[in-house]
Write a protein that binds this DNA or RNA. Structure first.
Lengths: 336, 336
DNA sequence: TTGAAAGCGCTAACAG
DNA sequence: CTGTTAGCGCTTTCAA
């Protein structure tokens, strides 16, 4: 069997309490005893059993992370932030993928609870309030991350979508574009963040003479959806002399550029296209995608820092934390 | 505090042993008692404390996964496989990112041990034997996954790189290419899997009349590296009438195609380019990348299944498991 | 079929 | 400064 605190105590000729004390630096121990203990630990290769420790301290040093799908690069990026910062505070993360199913999200939350995780970060892509309620009921620190939907009075960390969208539109305007098509998705859902983005777009447009609003709504956020919308979008583009298409997500933008590529339409020569998110793809793809940088890594990092802070201080902070965005000026949008 | 087995026992008017028995179905319990217990559990919303359970059973139902960087899409894909299959067997995964540092890998292995993980999967990108030795010394089931380096007598799951490379080369030959440049990386390292891939390439070339070997070696595996090699590669291409470039990794291929894009060289019209891996990018990028599908999801899935099998049966299986590959015939390579 | 009791490995009073 | 002891919540003999 593996070596326990008892073995160390015996070898060092002290009681297990003393060993515990030196491991945790919880109480003064004579130099001499400490040395003997340390030697014994070294000699036996002793590692405290964290499970036993957790049982008594009720601290597992585990944070549960429930995500939709780690295959999404933006989620992977968030997890990087979560993991890296968590590590700094000696927290490990246990990962579960819900693949978007709210019931699975709930089930995982319960599962994680029974593993005694100290906090939960939920990266969701749906707007089911019931999941949030369930997790809130768990009475452990909790941060909710959702790229698509808004959740009232939830601890979360996001960007200011109104400003982000406005900024991007302004940038396009500065490039000389006047007829800019904003492609939105699921904007009918009241919880959708799209309403802020649309407002930001509208605001920017309304601030400019001779600029006109054009909004087109599609279903879905995937590259395929961006591809499929191609025909219709190009129709609108032609009818209205549109020179720039601002897509509400990078994936959509890339799908649309793929459509353009396949149909002999040159980006940005024939039309400028911008995205939103700055997923990994955006900078590797050609043409490099002009987009809004939503700082996924930082979002994850701040989320876990919040949880840890909460764990330490018991005091709740304000619910929303807004992180700054940046316009990534790349090749897919050109001056006209 | 949260409800414990005692509370359930009290409410159900039985001893805690009985409660334990019904939870675990470990011993017969009278129908009547069982019902009372079940009711009590229901009523109190009791969930067993897994930490306490682990302490006595020495089963944590946790598998430790150490990866280089979850930001690599192929690694994310492996993790998906690991997580999804692990879940089926009620295992949770705890994730650590080493960012390629061998010492960190070792440290995490120890950390995971103290959390009582039942097995470890290491997704590494270096060839440090010492890490493997360390983890082997932990005496828990362990699978080693490495896309770049070969590890003798390690439990692992891979593809047959010789065959994969041979297949791809054959495919290019069938497309009509005779002068095919194979771009390798780090081939000087004895542990590199490149030697198998190079051999596969050579074999395929030598099987064809009028086909000649061209091998170019670069440093690194990233898109940037693929980009940087562009000038030199195009020089070689021109000198030798090369019509196809077979890159040893997708990332390299994409970087190279980016170079081509930026320099007005059309792929596949001017030159065919193939990759290796079939990372997520390969099918989204334009032109869609012709490549070897290395089944990352399955690799992860099989890896954890091995661990679980091992846990159950104590018997060791053979060390290497080979998964089948596929040539993904897409747009970046054309017939000539 | 059931309950009492002994731990799993550790921390944290408490007494000295 | 140190040792003894009582648990943490649960599983598992052992007797009944």
């Amino acid at each position: 069997m593996s070596v326990t605190i008892k073995d160390v105590a015996k070898l060092a000729n002290v009681s297990i309490s003393t060993v515990s004390r030196v491991i945790n630096n919880s109480k003064p121990v004579s130099l001499e005893a400490r040395k003997r203990v340390l030697d014994a630990i070294e000699q036996l290769g002793y590692k405290p059993n964290e499970v036993a420790r957790s049982l008594v301290t009720r601290k597992s040093n585990l944070i549960g992370v429930i995500v939709t799908d780690i295959g999404n690069s933006y989620i992977a990026e968030m997890i990087r932030g979560i993991e890296e910062i968590g590590r700094m505070y000696k927290y490990d993360i246990v990962l579960s993928s819900s693949y978007g199913n709210p019931d699975t999200e709930k089930k995982f939350a319960q599962l994680l609870m029974s593993k005694q995780v100290e906090g939960i970060i939920l990266v969701s892509e749906n707007d089911k309030q019931s999941v949030i309620e369930e997790i809130k009921g768990l009475k452990i620190p909790f941060v909710y991350l959702n790229r698509y939907y808004d959740s009232q009075d939830m601890p979360t960390v996001t960007i200011n979508n109104f400003e982000a969208s406005q900024e991007m539109t302004k940038y396009l305007v500065n490039l000389g574009h006047r007829n800019i098509l904003y492609v939105t998705s699921n904007e009918d859902n009241k919880a959708s963040l799209e309403r802020f983005k649309i407002d930001g777009y509208k605001k920017a447009i309304s601030d400019v003479d001779k600029a006109e609003e054009f909004i087109y709504s599609v279903k879905g956020f995937k590259p395929e959806d961006g591809y499929k919308m191609g025909d219709k979008v190009m129709e609108i583009v032609k009818e209205n002399n549109i020179t720039a298409v601002f897509c509400c997500q990078d994936e959509l933008a890339i799908g649309f550029i793929n459509y353009c590529y396949d149909n002999g339409i040159k980006v940005p020569e024939d039309i400028s296209v911008s995205g939103y998110g700055d997923t990994k793809m955006a900078s590797i793809y050609r043409p490099r995608l002009t987009t809004v940088k939503e700082p996924y890594y930082d979002i994850g990092a701040v989320a876990i820092r919040r949880i840890i802070k909460n764990l330490k201080s018991e005091e709740k902070e304000k619910d929303h934390i807004y992180l700054p965005i940046r316009i990534m000026k790349r090749e897919s949008c050109k001056k006209i």
